[in-house]
Computed example of a mutant assay.
Amino acid sequence: MVEAEPDLYERLQIRYPPSPTRVLAPGSPPAASRWTLGTVLAMGMGVVLVATLAALITLYVQGQADLRAARAELVAIGAHPLPDPDGPLNPSESPSAAQRRKEQLGRWLQGLSLGWRYHQGKIYYFSREPKPWSEAEAACRFTHSYLTSITSLEEQDYLAQEARGGSYWIGLTATGPGGSWRWVDGATYSQAQSFWAPGQPDSTDHGQWGQEDCAQIHPVRNGLWNDHNCNFTFPWICKRDLSMP
């Protein structure tokens, strides 16, 4: 007995087009997964925005404190008795002298707004990019400053703390008479008032690169000094005194 072949309509598979609301892009996750991912991303962006806002507020508050301290310092020293660029003129000085003071105060306040840090009548700049020592010094000179000198324990402690474990060029170099150490800003170098790490300076010879004739704040022993080859690249610290023009 011959079996009857299946009816034509039994073999026909009717395929309906998918509903437009259900069409997904290739590789797209299911709707529930997309909702979860979107929620996570939104929450993450919220956290980032809150953290960024908190950081900006902290920087603003610190900047305002620095500005107030700088103004107070300018008032305290006789060469800068004008606390406010828009304040009244001193009757005993000429308009041109008052204008020069206003311009100088404006430069200080601008420097603080650009990331310089105020401390004890001076402002410091901690760079982020690395350069050889000579280029770092040139960068400081471009901003009417010098690679920083360090002439007291208080200043050493402040800079070591602000360095936060990093290595930074400072303005000490062995280019004086007979290879003696000197500060490029003209400060007097004193071995008794120096802060070298144990065993430093050791003047290691780097062959074709020469010896170690430049100093840096180094992570070892809480930012004590290390001598290094001047051709190597590190970030640096500039310093300006409030008495500088």
Rank of each mutant, 00 (worst) to 15 (best):
Q120I: 01
Y168D: 08
V48Q: 01
R34Y: 01
A70E: 06
A136T: 03
D241C: 05
F142E: 15
N229P: 01
P18W: 03
R117K: 14
R34A: 11
D202L: 08
S92H: 03
H218A: 14
T151S: 10
D7P: 05
Q156C: 00
D227K: 04
S113V: 01
V47F: 00
L56G: 00
S134L: 09
G63N: 11
W236N: 04
S203P: 00
R107I: 11
Q120P: 00
A174P: 06
F232M: 05
S152A: 12
A4S: 14
P18D: 13
K102F: 02
Q64K: 15
H228Q: 09
A163F: 12
K131E: 03
L74T: 03
P235I: 05
E10D: 14
M43Q: 12
W225I: 07
G87Y: 03
P83M: 07
A98S: 13
P245D: 13
R141Y: 01
E93F: 03
E154K: 14
E154Y: 01
F126Y: 13
P18F: 05
S33D: 14
E162T: 12
G111E: 08
Q62V: 10
V23L: 15
P91W: 09
E103M: 08
P177C: 01
D157K: 15
A139D: 09
I170Q: 05
W35G: 08
G78R: 14
S152W: 07
L109D: 02
H206A: 12
L12F: 13
M1Y: 13
F142L: 14
P130I: 10
A76M: 08
P26H: 08
P6A: 12
A139L: 04
P26Y: 07
T151F: 00
Y158D: 02
A42I: 06
L24C: 11
D202C: 10
P85C: 09
D86E: 15
R221F: 12
Q191L: 09
G223M: 06
Q110C: 01
T58C: 02
I170Y: 07
I237D: 01
L242M: 15
A197L: 07
E10L: 10
Y146T: 10
R15C: 02
L24Q: 14
Q104M: 11
D66H: 15
A79K: 13
G115E: 11
Y118I: 07
L224S: 12
G199C: 10
E129I: 09
D185S: 08
S149Y: 06
N222V: 06
G87T: 09
C140K: 05
R100T: 12
V47R: 01
R164Y: 04
E3N: 09
D7F: 11
E103W: 01
P29S: 10
Q161L: 12
S194F: 08
Y124C: 06
Y124I: 06
E154D: 14
Q156W: 09
L56V: 07
P20M: 02
P219T: 07
S203M: 10
S190T: 06
A25L: 15
I57N: 05
C214H: 04
D202Y: 05
R101E: 11
